[in-house]
Design a protein around this nucleic acid. Structure first.
Length: 491
RNA sequence: GGCGGCAUAGCCAAGUGGUAAGGCGACGGUCUGCAAAACCGUUAUUCACCGGUUCAAAUCCGGUUGCCGCCUCCA
């Protein structure tokens, strides 16, 4: 089956055929560094991280560029509020961005260029646009003339007439057409500026992405992406600038991720439901957040709530508990004697384990259907648990080899999602430690009670044993009696 | 006003022509002293509603209702 990607430009899923065989150039719009990153940034970053990982998994040599917008009105505003240079703000939030993204286990892109390092490239591009007659200068500002670019609107699926009809754009006297956008803005006194042919000023927002993407990836490249909200005007304007200048197609496949709502409301600062990545990572393992996002198709909106993260965490805990059980089982010696195992159940598990990788790839090849692929992870988990059930602590060679095969696939395909990358033991230990902090109970106290209870169990004093278990349960501790001893976990 | 999207079980969620994945929850069974965990099984004859096309529709077409996004900075 072919590898297909939904292209915003055509509104269809298309076969993915990169410009150069086995190589992919990909650009994702990063952030404007004037504030902390929120959960919406996290989704976008995770979506493109998984795309980046999957392309590499598929054997492509990927050049991935994600930029920083480090000069912009909002940064200047923030700098003025705090009475510092705009660079202080930009640097601070770049650092915070790196901390947050590191916390989400994101792979480093190949390049992370900053807008301010590419001002001269922007000036060059603007000059070309003026020469070609698609941009014009007005009192130190330079605007792109949207009417001169015949394809304007092709990405967002609108035309100039429609947009003018419903225009809510503030009329800027200097513009020939209200929809024209700034390539260069003259600076007001006290604002940061760069010297240009049109006087002192700073670049408009869109021009940086045209310059940086083409610098690292060439005039035409494979994938360009970002949040859905960037389709118009940002990406539309990037296309206009780039294609007007080069006369060549800009990005070939446009990928846009959907939004994150919070408790069914759009996230916004005014509603006070603005959630930062830092806040989320305080309460949740990054893989919980990844699993949450990957359970939804990347183009659909998702609704964030504590309840849904809790549900997802239950799932992740189960995965790790299975992976842990597999490791425990594999530590046990294989039994040589032919013990009776249900060969039907065994065959069923074997089929699931063996077909897993193919099904995973089919799902991912179909426009990165991570939700579908996760379904197969759950199937794989059930198959492995079923084998553990058959094994009952006495693995045959056959069971051992299936278990380790399943375990290996879990980790390998899991890497694409950034999931299941921790040692299960480490994961589970941390769950316990973090849980205990909230419970005002020490591990020693729990172990002592378990010992006491096991003494009672030996004497068949079920009443006492159950009392102890209920006592612990009321504190939020669940006990599990297994053949190899009593385990405990946080509710 | 213009453009676009969505509506699938109690909840979450895949599925764009071939007879409804998966998860959470719930219920029953196996196991267990009893539990827990795990396993096995049950949980949508039906995909907002009404028409149409087709041998065949959740999927395509037309209409209705409801929700959402974009058109202004935004992941």
């Amino acid at each position: 089956m072919s590898f297909r990607i939904y292209n915003t430009l055509t509104g269809k899923k298309e076969d993915f055929l990169p410009l150069r065989e086995k190589q992919v150039g990909m650009y994702a719009c990063g952030v404007t560094v004037y504030d902390l990153c929120h959960i919406g940034h996290a989704r976008s970053a995770i979506v493109f991280d998984v795309i980046y990982r999957y392309l590499r998994y598929r054997g492509y040599d990927v050049t991935f560029v994600r930029n920083f917008t480090d000069i912009d009105d909002k940064i200047i505003k923030r700098a003025n509020e705090e009475g510092v240079d705009y660079r202080v703000i930009a640097e601070k939030y770049i650092e915070e961005f790196n901390i947050d993204m590191g916390g989400l286990d994101l792979e480093k892109p190949s390049f992370e260029p900053k807008a301010t390092d590419h001002i001269s490239g922007m000036i060059d591009l603007i000059s070309i646009l003026i020469e070609k007659g698609v941009a014009y200068q007005r009192e130190g500002d330079v605007f792109f003339s949207v009417g001169k670019f015949k394809d304007y609107g092709k990405l967002s699926g609108r035309n100039l007439d429609e947009m003018q009809a419903g225009a809510r754009v503030e009329i800027d006297e200097k513009k020939e057409n209200p929809l024209d956008f700034a390539l260069w803005k003259s600076s007001k006194p006290g604002e940061p500026f760069w010297k240009s042919l049109w006087g002192e000023g700073r670049p408009g927002w869109h021009i940086e992405c045209s310059v940086m993407s083409q610098k690292y990836l060439g005039e035409t490249f494979d994938i360009h992406g970002g949040g859905k909200d960037l389709i118009f005007p940002h990406h539309e304007n990037e296309i206009a600038q780039s294609e007007a200048a080069t006369g060549k197609p800009f990005a070939r496949y446009w990928i846009h991720n959907g939004f994150v709502n919070i408790n069914k409301e759009k996230m916004s600062k005014s509603l006070g439901n603005f959630l930062t990545i830092k806040e989320i990572l305080k309460g949740w393992h990054p893989e919980v957040l990844r699993l949450f996002f990957l359970s939804h198709h990347y183009r659909s909106p998702v609704d964030y709530s504590e309840d849904s993260l809790l549900e997802v965490k239950t799932g992740l805990d189960r995965f790790y508990s299975t992976l842990n059980a597999i490791q425990e089982e594999l530590k046990k010696p294989a039994i040589s004697s032919q013990k009776k195992v249900d060969s039907n159940a065994m065959d069923q598990s074997r089929k699931i384990i063996e077909s897993f990788q193919v099904r995973f790839e089919e799902a991912m090849d179909d426009d990165f259907n991570t939700a579908q692929a996760l379904g197969y992870f759950y199937d794989l988990q059930t198959a492995l648990n079923s084998l553990l059930d058959l094994s009952k602590g006495q693995p045959t060679d056959q069971i051992r080899s299936l278990l380790s095969e399943g375990d290996e696939r879990f980790r390998k395909m899991g890497w694409v999602f950034g999931l299941f990358q921790e040692e299960p033991e480490v994961y589970m230990d941390r769950q316990k430690k973090e849980g205990l902090k909230k419970l005002d109970l020490s591990e020693e106290a729990i172990l002592k009670l378990i010992e006491e209870r096991n003494g009672a169990r030996k004497n068949k004093d079920w009443k006492k044993a159950d009392e102890i278990r209920n006592h612990l349960l009321s504190k939020g501790i669940i006990l599990e009696d297994t053949p190899s001893g009593t385990l405990w976990k946080i509710k």
